[in-house]
Computed example of a mutant assay.
Amino acid sequence: MNGYLGFMGFWSDIDQDYQLRYQEWHNCEHIPERLGIPGFIEGRRYRGAPGGPNFFMCYVTAGPEVLRSEAYLSALNRPTPWTQEALAHFRNPTRTLYRKLRAVGPEGGYAPYVLLLRFDDERPAETLENQVVEALSGNGFAAVSGALYEVDAEASSIMTAERRIYAGGPGRQRYLIAIEALDRAQAEEGAERLERRLSPGARDLDRSIYWLETRIRAEDLRASARKDMQ
Results as ranks from 00 to 15, higher is better:
100 K>I: 04
79 P>Y: 02
104 V>D: 05
209 I>C: 10
52 G>V: 12
94 T>I: 14
228 D>H: 13
60 V>D: 09
180 E>K: 05
124 P>N: 05
116 L>V: 11
66 V>L: 06
137 S>F: 04
204 D>M: 10
196 R>C: 03
12 S>G: 00
11 W>L: 10
71 A>Q: 08
148 L>W: 12
143 A>V: 08
195 E>R: 14
194 L>K: 01
77 N>C: 07
48 G>E: 03
15 D>K: 06
164 R>E: 14
68 R>H: 03
200 P>N: 05
142 A>Y: 11
83 T>W: 00
10 F>W: 14
122 E>C: 08
169 G>Y: 05
57 M>E: 01
197 R>W: 04
8 M>W: 13
214 T>K: 05
176 L>K: 09
37 I>N: 15
192 E>P: 02
116 L>Y: 02
63 G>P: 13
16 Q>R: 15
194 L>Y: 02
191 A>H: 12
31 I>K: 01
150 E>W: 07
198 L>F: 11
229 M>L: 15
34 R>V: 12
227 K>W: 15
3 G>T: 07
171 G>D: 11
84 Q>K: 15
206 D>Y: 06
143 A>L: 03
200 P>R: 01
94 T>M: 09
206 D>L: 12
159 M>T: 07
46 Y>W: 14
157 S>M: 14
196 R>Y: 00
138 G>P: 03
167 A>V: 03
96 T>V: 11
157 S>P: 08
227 K>T: 15
